[in-house]
Design a protein around this nucleic acid. Sequence first.
DNA 1: AGAAGAGTGGGAAAATGTGGGGAGATGTAG
DNA 2: CTACATCTCCCCACATTTTCCCACTCTTCT
Lengths: 148, 148
Amino acid sequence: MGIWGQFNITIDDKGRMSLPAKIRGKIQGDNLILTKGTEKCLWLYLPEEWERVSRQLIDGASVFSLNTQDVLRRFIAPAEEVSVDKAGRVKLSSSLMKSMDLNRDCYLLGMGERMEIWDEAVYDRFEEERSAEVKQTWEGYGGSETVS
Amino acid sequence: MGIWGQFNITIDDKGRMSLPAKIRGKIQGDNLILTKGTEKCLWLYLPEEWERVSRQLIDGASVFSLNTQDVLRRFIAPAEEVSVDKAGRVKLSSSLMKSMDLNRDCYLLGMGERMEIWDEAVYDRFEEERSAEVKQTWEGYGGSETVS
DNA sequence: AGAAGAGTGGGAAAATGTGGGGAGATGTAG
DNA sequence: CTACATCTCCCCACATTTTCCCACTCTTCT
């Protein structure tokens, strides 16, 4: 169910990012949707998931609400359709790469309904910053500490 | 019931870790789930237990909640399914090994529903640091009374 | 001592990831 | 409108990684 896993990927000089084989198997067509994430990363959606998420946003948006208009600008407007080439790679536009500080070495995170593309250095720093809170949230869920 | 015990294990040059015979007997299928732990170690789950823990998190996750997204990134996304080969070994990915400083000589700790994989040097140091607090916590439970 | 089981190492085939050349499309300036 | 430059996509080739299988040693039990 969904796409999971964390992968080290590289983006070559031509802006091509090759999808790990495990993920290639989960894609039916040749298209994916790429847009800006809420953190310093890009989001990569399967078409059907993108359809669902974006429709939910668009349908719920009020023309007169500044907030929802902002969400549309940030999330829907920058979205672009990317196609997977025969070697299993997608091309990232230089403008999206630059806006999220992506360099050669990146992570691809499977987050279930979508994937996230992070620059390695950016993500390592982010994870470090958030680690204490993450641990606390995990414990709040009961984690594996519950004895059955 | 559950998996108990502390074992010295070695990880060979190809990243293969052989499970002690006592543990092999407790595994029904050929699959285990490997992910990052809260401390400097990896967690190795039995599939059914992983299913329970991860489902609890995923079902409760909101796309816009930073906390639950972080927990997904930290615990669920890095998870990988590993299969046990005919010699009773599992392959650890180099990225997970590196993130937890695992070298050749490691410990495998049975923690009931999951196992933990620690680098020997890292664990010895950790245990040293925590020993005072552990003793105190134990006394807080009522000394020789069982912890449920 | 012999047999069976456990742990370790290594080789070969297959799959995966990466780089680069070149044809075609697109765009720009003269 | 043409010539030139740029960008994109497609294809092939190479190197590395992964996977699978087999062989050997050491311990343990009979």
